[in-house]
């Protein structure tokens, strides 16, 4: 089943540069879709378009269609100005490159959004906190110190806390923009492993921090170059036998 269907998406920034040019692609549910390519290719722009974070950026023109599908087959038009952005972002969560923890306890970092959304019942919050920490493979490490400040966690733990925080609201899609770029190999490993678990129940769209990570994690991978989608195929095909010369050159390290 497709989670997102993108048709002819073009995004232009105010400096005149086209960040994305007529992108069309379908992103399947319950799998990891990787967007990779050299800097300035449009990967992050696409990611930020999917939950309308570009609303806050200096975008002058955006055209095309982005539809988000629910399990029952119904869909919303993401780019439509009438679409409820808050509701959209609850369904499509984002984890950034640098972990941004709230200056609160570990527990409050996770319960905060739910409380904002009106949830006050302690058992419900407790449950949500534990569930999301488990999913992000962090529970065992922090279960005895939930009241400690989140800022005291290591970088890797903070990033998994951010992942857990996005999971607390039970989204359908998780967008990750180089989530392990500042992490050591062990923490990177843990994040990648939790993604493999999470894809059973969520749709994951990842901008990896390296081509190796792209190859390791991708169920399908899309190669972006200067705003164009060059090639989009199953990971095991694109990294072993890329069809486009530019994809091949990039994967083999000839540019980028």
């Amino acid at each position: 089943m497709d989670k997102f269907v993108i048709e002819d998406l073009t995004v232009q920034y105010s400096d005149g540069a086209e960040s994305l040019r007529q992108i069309s692609m379908a992103i399947p549910a319950n799998s990891i879709t990787v967007l990779f390519g050299p800097a300035g290719g449009g990967k992050s722009t696409l990611l930020r378009t999917l939950n309308r974070l570009n609303d806050l950026a200096d975008v002058v023109r955006i055209s095309g269609k982005v539809r988000l599908f629910a399990a029952d087959g119904s869909s919303v038009e993401v780019l439509d100005r009438r679409t409820d952005v808050i509701a959209l972002r609850r369904r499509v969560a984002m984890v950034f490159a640098r972990p941004i923890v709230l200056p609160l306890s570990i527990y409050q970092n996770l319960s905060y959004a739910l409380e904002m959304a009106g949830e006050r019942r302690k058992p419900v919050l407790d449950q949500a906190v534990e569930r999301s920490l488990r999913k992000a493979a962090l529970w065992e490490e922090v279960k005895d110190r939930l009241q400690d400040p989140a800022a005291a966690l290591s970088g890797g733990q903070q990033q998994r806390l951010c992942l857990a925080r996005s999971l607390a609201l039970e989204p359908e899609v998780i967008l990750l923009d180089e989530p392990t770029s500042g992490l050591d190999p062990i923490s990177t490993n843990k994040v990648e492993e939790s993604l493999q678990e999470l894809k059973q129940n969520y749709t994951i769209i990842l901008v990896p921090h390296s081509i190796q990570q792209a190859a390791r994690t991708a169920d399908q991978a899309a190669f972006f170059l200067q705003g164009d989608l060059i090639e989009y195929r199953p990971g095991k095909e694109i990294f072993l036998n890329p069809q486009d010369r530019r994809t091949k050159d990039y994967i083999e390290g000839r540019f980028g």
Partner: peptide
């Protein structure tokens, strides 16, 4: 084997 080498390094 080749896929494993290419994707899992």
């Amino acid at each position: 084997c080749m896929i494993t080498i290419a994707t899992q390094q």
